[in-house]
């Protein structure tokens, strides 16, 4: 039996995006390309293309989208979201997709490490001597490796 290579089963991804993350109207994209043409991340890494990401969602290809690393290349500058004539919240959409990916256990290894760091130390990156050297030069006190408050808050949240 021949069948379409177009996916039909995961309509719920769009529903998920709308209901859980408030990203609506993805289908209303008419692919004008304004998002991609003005994307600074895309300039650096052509593999990242917000227009293609939306197109894949419209074509029900969320599954393969979540498997790819490209959604992690967005710099969250909101240029695309600002400019989309259809008012699609593209940056919010990318964030939502990342959340979905993480829930499915898919994320680049660096992201997981970073998340663990935030959870355990309340910091995005581990401190090293370099930071304190610079601070000392500027007459600032050295930093504590762990931000207790942030760790506590994150614990409470979860």
């Amino acid at each position: 039996m021949v069948d379409s290579n177009l996916q039909t089963e995961d309509r719920d991804v769009l529903q998920d995006l709308a209901e859980r993350y408030g990203v609506e109207g993805v289908r209303s994209c008419y692919a004008c390309g304004t998002c991609a043409a003005g994307c600074p991340a895309r300039r650096v890494n052509p593999a990242y293309n917000p227009r293609k990401i939306i197109r894949m969602l419209v074509l029900n290809e969320a599954k393969s989208l979540l498997e790819k690393d490209t959604i992690w290349l967005c710099s969250s500058c909101y240029t695309c979201q600002e400019r989309c004539p259809q008012g699609i919240k593209i940056t919010d959409l990318i964030t939502a997709l990342r959340n979905l990916a993480v829930q499915q256990g898919r994320s680049p290894s660096g992201v997981g490490m970073q998340a663990n760091l935030v959870r355990s130390q309340g910091r995005l990156y581990a401190l090293d001597e370099f930071d304190d050297k610079k601070r000392k030069k500027a007459g600032l006190p050295s930093l504590s490796p762990q931000i207790e408050e942030a760790v506590r808050l994150l614990k409470e949240e979860s």
């Binding site: 390309g33 304004t34 043409a37 003005g38 994307c39 240029t79």
Partner: peptide, 17 residues
């Protein structure tokens, strides 16, 4: 496509990305 950025280029030309 509809361009994203619009800028002045080469002094008085109109540039787009």
């Amino acid at each position: 496509e509809i361009p994203g950025d619009y800028f002045v280029s080469d002094g008085d030309r109109v540039g787009v990305s």
